[in-house]
Design a protein around this nucleic acid. Structure first.
Length: 276
DNA sequence: AGGGGTACCTGCGGGC
DNA sequence: TGCCCGCAGGTACCCC
């Protein structure tokens, strides 16, 4: 579920909530959701929270850190001490892992589909690993029109697949790939290496605009499932989708009908009049 | 190499 | 009401 804007929102909120607090216990309710020896971070202080692509990186004192991937249905929900007492989450059957902090507050990892994971990783080593496995961060200096030119040139498949390829650009998933392509006026089926320089510029701007808007609206939530903020509130960006899951509805730009198709096994939405 | 299909899981909404 | 099917924000793996 969560893509860069959702994970970034969680990251910012989590940092305020838990930085400086000591992990006093970790309750693992679903063994497959937690990889590694939890003792390696218990009794240690959280020194920072970062985002890498779609992952949350919790920096902890010592040699080990925590890495979290929410995949499709993972949520991180934070309760202070007062809220943690008689909390619905305490008996929620979808809560897989509970972090307990020294001030009595708790962080719940809730994940209906159990695809997500929390891993103990080497503090320094894993950073190096991920820099090579993950592509550039869209908001870093490395992401540029030049970089997009380079990766599109060598990509003979649909451009939408490229946008979602984490080893090229980190953090874009199905929502923001669809939205970025609409903003760029490019059909998702277009082969990336067929894009003109002008189109690549539009794509660059479209990617940044889609992600920036997502962050501004604190991510995209759908009904009572999937992504929510750490206090359980919904994001608002779903109210601003231009194409995503809007099949049969009118394009805000031209009034045409948004169509749904499948690319790379994923739902894809397009206005054929606005996207060529 | 690239593309398609499947697997991992659970729940919801729609059609019959 | 109930059952079956398709679908869901992600990614890894298998096979051709």
């Amino acid at each position: 579920m969560p893509e860069l804007p959702e994970v970034e929102t969680i990251k910012r909120q989590l940092e305020k909530a838990i930085a400086g607090k000591t992990i006093v216990d970790i309750e693992v309710r679903n063994a497959k959701s937690f990889v590694g020896n939890k003792q390696e971070v218990i009794s240690k202080k959280v020194t920072g929270v970062k985002r890498i692509g779609k992952m949350i990186h919790i920096e902890v004192e010592g040699q080990k850190d925590l890495l979290i991937h929410l995949k499709m249905s993972g949520q991180l929900l934070y309760s202070n001490k007062q809220q943690a007492i008689s909390n619905k989450l305490e008996t929620d059957k979808h809560v897989r892992v509970v972090f307990k902090f020294n001030d009595g507050s708790r962080l719940y990892f809730r994940d209906v589909r159990k695809f997500g994971w929390i891993k103990i990783v080497q503090s320094l080593k894993f950073k190096v690993q991920n820099l090579t496995v993950l592509g550039v961060e869209p908001f870093s200096d490395k992401f540029s029109v030049e970089y997009l030119k380079k990766v599109t040139k060598n990509w003979r498949r649909p451009v939408k697949i490229l946008l979602m390829e984490q080893s090229k650009i980190a953090g874009i998933g199905n929502i923001y790939a669809n939205e970025a392509l609409f903003l760029a006026g490019i059909h998702p089926q277009r082969l990336a290496n067929s894009l003109t320089e002008e189109e690549i510029k539009r794509l660059y701007n479209g990617i940044l605009k889609a992600l920036e808007e997502g962050i501004k609206h604190q991510g995209s939530s759908s009904r009572d499932r999937g992504y929510v903020m750490i206090n359980g509130e919904l994001g608002r960006h779903q109210d601003y989708f231009r194409v995503y899951q809007r099949d049969g509805d009118k394009c805000y730009k031209c009034g045409g009908i948004i169509e749904r198709m499948v690319i790379g096994g994923r739902g894809t939405w397009v206005c054929r009049k606005c996207q060529k």
